[in-house]
Write a protein that binds this DNA or RNA. Structure first.
Length: 554
RNA sequence: GGCUCGUUGGUGAAAUGGUUAACACAUUGCCCUCUCAAGGCAACAUUCAUGGGUUCAAAUCCCAUACGAGUCACCA
């Protein structure tokens, strides 16, 4: 009996060979230097910021080299698969406009190197595993869960290295006859890789991010096929898929660097060329309670999940820039020099990735986002705001869709200038800063936010006089302000702030107090954008109405 | 515990042997100013985890220590 017989017993139905698949997955016909990357999430949870960073780097690396970026669904762990996660990944990629060139979704396969869903690639993996068994580099292992636990416990206690290697790999020494007998007897088994490595020897490895690394050789017989569903483990699927799909650059989290020796040996066992690796740093978070730095957590940190940014209404490009800023230290400088270039023209350099993890800084995101929003036209902003509201804030949607021109005019205040206002970091922050522009948002409990105590009669008197004798909608801003000054000085308010600061006792108050009254009566707020523009939008009738509301409510 | 990586201000970081350790965000102050936002100008690491060494010269090279992170599943 030979290994071939064993392979035949395990995979009687597999008649294909590796060569068959090599023919079906010929080298890609791409220009010199083109890079092939893949985003390979597993649908065991919702897409988070770390996945996003990976996907973005994949996209940038591929697109800056006229290469290919594809999506592969790594669904070999079907026990933990989470309902809706595949759809969410697809949604996020679409939302941020980083769709892959090749993918499989909704029963459609785009691209010639599919299937792109691992659970649909079973015969391929089995063919490759069968080959490994035939050449004596893989074997069925009948160790039970209990035996495995026992071994681990023993190793822990006696401070030995943990894992299945050397004398712990019991099934390795089974004769072919014994193995076949066990299989025929129905004993469950996994297929393990038969390592030939020597832990006391070193391998040199060059990682694009971390540079030269040195590891002990792998000597662990790791499972490459699971017993229950006969699907491959990650390590095996990685080797087979990235080989057949001709991935040139694997972008993955740094939690994988410790399995480099294993992957190295696996590639060698097949005689395949290893792709290049870009190991991305972890995204960390400072725990607010303990002050400790830890891995960002989907459970504790709402901003870890990609839902967060959409719900808050951050512009896509702001999120992308923020993530790339974390990913590559020179992105920010590049962005400053190339404010209008698409992000994928950024020459990503893996060496410029920080080797240790970075804290994700929401303040930085806000700043980036404010800048982008401040540069949008009022129309564009309105439409983004509207479609965000439609999805997340029905009340806001109803109000702003009924008042399109008022909303646009309001958003336009101090916008078309060299140094525009930067009030909003996301769409959800607009309404809380503009609700007073809409009559229907003036609910019962109106609170007037005067910065200091005021005499109601005085305020009413000022507003009355102003609206009835001074206000003219045709005035430009200078004329408007001069009139207010005229009225103010006639009522003993200082019109010059410097003068007022020096001789405040000579006056009733300052022009700032004066306009402050008007501002609060009209908006309830002590801080708003330019009053002139707000008055222009409101118009005289609505201002008079608001004066009436003030009389009744203050 | 084994293996691997890391440690520059509140945060992201630049500088890779040579003047006062860039820049951005945040914070604080001043100016401007009808409030706010924006903008302008400042301040913020006597020092690069600690200790030793190499050198005319070290954040940068070497060693040790400490601390942190990742990993050690029939999860990816």
């Amino acid at each position: 009996m030979t290994n071939k017989d064993l392979a035949e017993v395990i995979f009687p139905d597999i008649t294909t060979t590796i060569e068959d698949y090599e023919k079906m997955y010929p080298p890609r016909n791409l220009p010199e230097g083109a890079k092939v990357t893949r985003f390979a999430p597993s649908p065991t949870g919702f897409m988070h910021i770390g996945n996003m960073m990976s996907a973005l780097i994949d996209y940038v690396v591929a697109h800056s080299s006229n290469g290919i970026f594809y999506l592969r669904n790594e669904d070999t762990d079907q026990m933990r698969s989470v309902e809706g996660s595949v759809e969410f990944i697809h949604h996020v990629l679409e939302h941020y406009d980083i769709m892959p060139d090749e993918y499989e979704y909704d029963n459609k396969i785009i691209g010639k190197y599919g299937p792109y869903i691992q659970s649909e690639r079973m015969p391929i993996y089995h063919t490759f595993i069968k080959h490994l068994i035939e050449i004596g580099r893989a074997y069925p292992c009948f160790l039970t869960k209990e035996e495995l636990d026992e071994i681990r416990e023993y190793q822990q206690k006696s401070k030995k290295r943990i894992g299945i290697y050397g004398r712990y790999a019991k099934s390795r020494n089974l004769t072919i006859e014994e193995a076949i007998a066990k299989i025929k007897n129905g004993e469950p088994y996994v297929i393990r890789f038969k390592s030939e490595g020597d832990f006391s020897k070193k391998i040199a490895f060059e990682d694009l991010t971390q540079g030269k690394l040195e590891f002990p050789e792998n000597d662990l017989d790791v499972p490459i096929m699971k017993s229950e569903n006969k699907l491959p483990t990650y390590h095996f699927a990685h080797v087979v898929d990235d080989h057949l799909m001709h991935t040139t650059h694997v972008v993955r989290g740094s939690e994988w660097v410790s399995s480099i020796p294993l992957h190295y040996e696996l590639f060698q066992a097949f005689g395949f060329k290893m792709p290049k690796y870009i190991h991305t740093s972890l995204i960390l978070k400072k725990d607010e309670e303990t002050g400790n730095i830890r891995k960002i957590s989907k459970r504790k940190d709402p901003e870890a999940l990609m839902f967060y940014y959409e719900e808050k209404g951050y512009p896509q490009i702001a999120v992308i820039d923020a993530v790339l800023t974390i990913a590559n230290s020179n992105f920010e400088v590049w962005r400053e020099q190339n404010p209008d270039k698409p992000f994928y023209e950024f020459p990503f350099s893996p060496k410029k990735m920080s080797a240790s993890g970075a804290l994700f800084d929401l303040d930085k995101l806000d700043n980036i986002s404010k800048n982008y929003i401040s540069k949008m036209s009022a129309q564009d902003l309105y439409h983004e705001y509207l479609s965000w509201a439609k999805k997340y804030e029905e009340n806001v949607y109803n109000i702003i869709s009924n008042h399109e021109s008022d909303t646009i005019n309001f958003l336009n205040i101090e916008r078309l200038v060299k140094k525009p206002r930067k009030d909003y970091e996301n769409y959800s922050s607009i309404f809380p800063k503009s609700w007073y522009m809409y009559d229907e948002a003036w609910k019962d409990n109106i609170t007037y936010n005067f910065p200091q105590d005021v005499v109601k009669e005085e305020v009413i008197n000022i507003m009355n006089t102003y609206l009835n004798s001074y206000y003219d909608p045709k005035d430009n801003q200078d004329e408007w302000f001069n009139k207010i000054k005229d009225l103010a000085s006639s009522m003993d308010y200082a019109t010059d702030m410097k003068e007022y600061k020096q001789n405040s006792k000579n006056y009733q108050g300052s022009i700032a107090d004066f306009t402050g009254y008007m501002r609060v009566v009209l908006t309830t707020q002590s801080m708003t954008p330019n009053l002139y523009d707000i008055m222009q939008i409101l118009g005289k009738d609505r201002m008079l109405k608001r004066l009436e509301i003030f009389k009744e409510n203050y």
